[in-house]
Design a protein around this nucleic acid. Structure first.
Lengths: 131, 131
DNA sequence: ATTTATGCAAATCATTTGCACATAG
DNA sequence: CTATGTGCAAATGATTTGCATAAAT
């Protein structure tokens, strides 16, 4: 049975406030209002929230996991330069989970991640890099 | 300029002999014939071979990178139980790299990885787990 | 003879875990 | 009260890196 701790509340708020944060982003944000929080607590709570389906864990091939309060499955773009994640507006393809590529294999899920350079990091963008 | 070392040859052979090995698999295999090889050498050579396009680096969301001598882009299935990788027989969708989901973003690549349980690890398989 | 590669150990990065203490219910 | 959560530090796993030595060209 779970309890509502101060830190769990702050972590949940951080995920809503930040855009696809990774554990470190959450830690940095929560630390501002509650400096004594430990990273272990952030990791433990993110794991619990994700396990309970309250948030979505996004595994990025290469790089830290990111988290999203939007729990419906969707795809992401990972900027190879600033490592920010962005939502991709193509619908989640449920059909992919129904293909039977090899006999006897059970597909539980799939992950489709695009990578490249975001507009802020592209050289042609002379407004300077974000972050 | 690169040189042909004994260890680079062994590492290249290992990737051809093994099925989608990760760095550790390669290390274990090469160690059998050349026990003095170091893991750093394995990592350095895998990185170089991948950078030079001789092998393909497969980033698995969660879990170690795997390598493939088949350099044409294709998709994989990752068994959540035994962590083995298997080829998926659906064609690489070059079109995915041409979509323009957000203005100004440059997509260089995409990765589509399926995950679930392979036939060997499925509970209904009473032949026992492989590995 | 240079320059690249190797082996080793230490360093990094993301994440997890053991443990004693704190606290929500 | 008592189970769950927290903070800290140490542990883990994958990978990288600094450095002195070895080997390829």
């Amino acid at each position: 049975m779970k309890r509502n701790t101060f830190q769990r509340t702050l972590i949940t708020e951080a995920i809503h406030y930040l855009n696809h944060p990774c554990a470190d982003d959450v830690y940095a944000y929560v630390s501002k209002s509650h400096p004594s929080i430990s990273k272990a607590t952030v990791y433990r709570n993110l794991a619990k929230l994700a396990d309970d389906g309250h948030i979505l864990r996004i595994r990025v091939p290469n790089g830290a996991d990111h988290f999203d309060y939007q729990i419906h499955k969707h795809y992401h773009f990972h900027c190879d330069e600033c490592h920010q994640l962005f939502d991709i507006e193509i619908p989640y393809n449920e059909h992919f989970n129904k293909i039977n590529p090899v006999d006897g294999f059970i597909i539980n899920n799939h992950s489709l991640t695009f990578n490249g350079i975001c507009d802020k990091c592209h050289p042609s963008n002379n407004k300077g890099k974000k972050k």
